[in-house]
């Protein structure tokens, strides 16, 4: 078979999906604020708030099914993230932040595979930057509050157990990795996972659709069916990644809080 034989015979050529598929036009008006990703953020905030309002509306000693669901969700973040990482002494006042972060990110990620929504909001990098900026303000603010400005600066830049002239080289490195690299990797990890997952899904579904419907070759049609099946399989993989990224983001937030509050580095 020649190389040209690999190209399916079709009326129009296949356009592979790319970053431009993430630039969604405004649903109404001409402001970017009314584009799908921004509206999804608002929707997720309403849904998460609604979920916890409904599940905690009538609290009873013997919980109803909805109260049980809410308590399980809350308890997961409270115990296995906040308490385990920050420690029993200080963790309680950070639980609301961490619970809100976790379920906000989780729902926005799940939007990537919920039928008819099918867009993970954090595949737009600016949202991830915004979230990481909040975390940056939180842990640095906490550190300054706890140790004082210069005390925190020392806390951040001078690692425990490192002494001598090598500190001259270490201090800028520590400062750079804690203050600049940390929020960037936090944001990019979430963004890149959501971006890549969504790209993979649209590639397999659009490619499958093209092979199945636009090509006249039976073999290509069969490959198109396989592509659709793979898209379903990847959706399950994405479910795992979406949960994991929400978990990792919250876990790292808790670790940064713990690091800022710690007595020693």
């Amino acid at each position: 078979m020649t190389v040209t034989g690999l190209v399916p015979v079709a009326s129009e050529t296949f356009e592979p999906p790319g970053p431009r598929d993430f630039d969604l036009p405004p649903v109404f008006g001409d402001s970017i604020l009314f584009a799908k990703p921004a509206l999804l953020l608002v929707l997720s905030a309403i849904v998460v708030l609604g979920f916890f309002l409904v599940t905690t509306r009538r609290m009873a000693m013997v919980p109803s099914k909805t109260q049980f669901a809410g308590e399980q969700a809350y308890g997961f973040v409270r115990n296995s993230i906040a308490r385990d990482i920050i420690g029993t002494k200080d963790f309680l006042k950070f639980v609301p932040w961490l619970v809100a972060t976790f379920f906000f990110i989780l729902l926005n990620n799940l939007f990537g595979i919920i039928p008819f929504i099918q867009f993970p909001s954090f595949s737009r990098v600016s949202f991830a930057y915004g979230l990481a900026a909040l975390v940056w303000l939180l842990y640095n603010g906490l550190g300054v509050y706890k140790h004082g400005f210069f005390g925190y600066l020392k806390h951040v830049t001078v690692p425990n157990g490192v002494t001598g002239p090598i500190l001259v080289l270490i201090i800028p490195l520590e400062f750079f990795s804690t203050v600049i690299v940390r929020p960037a990797t936090l944001a990019l990890r979430l963004f890149a996972n959501m971006f890549a997952g969504h790209l993979l899904l649209i590639l397999f579904t659009l490619g499958g659709e093209y092979l199945l419907l636009e090509s006249s070759n039976v073999g290509y049609k069969a490959v198109g069916v396989v592509a659709f099946l793979l898209a379903v399989a990847i959706s399950f993989l994405e479910l795992l990644v979406q949960f994991l990224q929400a978990y990792v983001f919250t876990l790292l937030t808790a670790m940064y809080i713990q690091g800022a509050l710690a007595e020693e580095h």
Partner: peptide
């Protein structure tokens, strides 16, 4: 954390 140090080191001294 370790990854952050590697990126930070390469970025700063680079």
């Amino acid at each position: 954390m370790a990854f952050g140090y590697l990126v930070g080191g390469a970025a700063f001294y680079g």
